[in-house]
Design a protein around this nucleic acid. Structure first.
Lengths: 104, 104
DNA sequence: ATAATAGGCAACCAAATGGTTGCATGTCAA
DNA sequence: TTGACATGCAACCATTTGGTTGCCTATTAT
């Protein structure tokens, strides 16, 4: 799970995921299009995403097609985010109570 | 939102959030307890978490109490994770279709 | 008053990160 | 078969990151 969090930490990589979300199965060059980065930089980012299992690839001749794998993101939501969502309101109200208590 | 993702990218910081989740309102020294890090390193991590608005602090005399703020995490779930969860099954089945198509 | 406690600040360091350029390889089309 | 195209690989570079040590300040307790 650490790899997934680290992969998501970079804005360029998140935007690559966004692009794949909009259109799945793009080639490397397709994904480079319009980005202010060299192809090699994009390759590295896709490598990180692949290592985190957020992207799966499929060779088709000389092309490499990239597919979004949303499962790890889903798992982060399930295993991690939900845990912190639970306390959302209680934590804030507790803080509010303490802040008010300060003036006693 | 970028700051939140980056803050969550580090395992030590996530574990600090876990600790605050377990017991809210801890002091710096309390949070250092049992960690293989100097107090100053923990201070830095807490600084990153504070900058990302994931932790709110409250001075109480010479102590600094740290409170978890789950709102940014909730927002990531709402604004980002849910978007990718939607395509979870369809994306995989599409990939499966393509993989099978390969052998035609 | 003074010692102990809680935390803040700054300089420094090694390693990781995000990017580059240059060149090599594999595949398709004319 | 040969040139163009899609990608891979490696060396290199600057900046960021995660950590350290050393010292300073503020508050509390004796």
């Amino acid at each position: 799970m650490d790899e997934v969090f680290k992969a998501l930490a970079d804005a360029s990589r998140r935007s690559l995921l966004d692009r794949l979300h909009a259109k799945n199965g793009q080639t490397l060059n397709e994904l480079c299009d319009g980005l202010a980065m060299t192809r090699q930089a994009v390759t590295k980012h896709l490598g990180v995403l692949e290592a985190a299992n957020l992207v799966t690839t499929l060779r088709h001749g000389r092309e490499k097609l990239h597919y979004l794998n949303p499962v790890p993101i889903h798992q982060i939501g399930e295993r991690w985010i939900k845990k912190f969502e639970r306390g959302k309101l209680t934590a804030l109200s507790e803080l509010k109570r303490r802040l008010e208590k300060r003036d006693e």
